[in-house]
Amino acid sequence: MSELSLSDLVVLLRARGVPVENIQFERLHEGYLKLRGLVNDMSRPMNLDTGLVVTFWPEDSPCTRSR
């Protein structure tokens, strides 16, 4: 899946009803590419069978052991 181009990004924001008058699109797109770069640079998790850990405790902590 490729990243959104600047024009796609503008279309998408307009379609979502975002008030676009005060948005500098070039700068937003620059940030978008930085964020996507960050996502893409993160290694894919080794184990996709593990559950999603949203409720989180530091490993080996008294909390982890008691739960």
């Binding site: 937003l28 964020l35 993160m42 998790p45 989180f56």
Partner: peptide, 19 residues
């Protein structure tokens, strides 16, 4: 606005990577 372009998959993979 930027954050609204993150997908549910991005979030889930980040939580898995976090683990």
């Amino acid at each position: 606005l930027l954050a609204s372009f993150l997908t549910s998959s991005d979030y889930i993979q980040a939580q898995r990577r976090r683990r």
